[in-house]
Amino acid sequence: MATVKEFRNNVRPNWCPGCGDFAVQAAIQRALGNLDLEPEQVAIISGIGCSGRISGYVNAYGFHGVHGRSLPVAQGVKLANHDLTVIASGGDGDGFGIGMGHFMHAARRNMDITYIVMDNQIYGLTKGQHSPTSAFGFKAKTTPAGNIENAISPLQIALAAGITYLAQGFSHDVNQLTELIQGGIEHKGFSLINVFSPCVTYNKVNTYEWYKQHIVHLEDFPDYTADDRSAAMAKVAETDGLCTGLVFRDDTRKPFDQLIQGYRPEPIIAQDLTLERAVFDKAMAEFA
């Protein structure tokens, strides 16, 4: 059985020292190691940005696509082979900027994939422009006088789109993050784990220290059960989105892959592709 070690490869990430993404990498590796999976059973699909490099930093099948499109690729992988554990990953710009449309639709489609977003509230790889999660007033290269747009709430959008597993973590707490990611992978349906993953180079506001001061932990609310969508919506609003832990979970809905008409337990790639003559003849007769 594979352990966390088998999910490590000897590639040195090109992230800056101190980058929050290292913790996400470690948490993914630990979660996979805890789950009795072999590296070849896992496919990690990522987008573009510093965080997009993650697919190359875990020993598993990795696909690094174009900007904002990790979710469509990941869903295609799952359709072809539902036996695979499919993880999509990227940053806040990738997922909530250019890829926002895909995010909402992936959430409502509810395929059994896990989406991990490294949210640093800035564009890092392009060297410091504001992102869709940058706060109002935030100063960046492209907002020298302060951001005049409102930040979006990925958690509220996910809830509104019908997500069935929603969690938020922080790079400072790898243990909690590992648990949340593991829960997302185990959940049969679409899951988002949004991770506050500080950019130590370009975001001088939302630092580790800042997050530590502002974040509340959902486990500190004993009455919060994370199984009520409207309560989850209210909790996110109440904490201004700055909460970590399991936000919402609904295990009653079957994932898309199992609801497909003519669903077969064996994955598509295991099928014999030759069309039977009888099916061919019947299809042809329909055009007579």
């Binding site: 174009v66 469509p72 295609g76 992988v77 359709l79 008409q261 003519g262 077969r264 064996e266």
Partner: peptide, 29 residues
């Protein structure tokens, strides 16, 4: 396609359509 274990997905746009096609092809379908 349901007769042979396949699937059609109506995607949110054509960008998703081709990227999803790529994902499925990469995975062997």
């Amino acid at each position: 396609l349901p007769l042979v274990g396949g699937v059609v997905v109506q995607t949110e746009d054509e960008i998703a359509a081709l990227n999803m096609t790529i994902g499925a092809a990469y995975a062997g379908a």
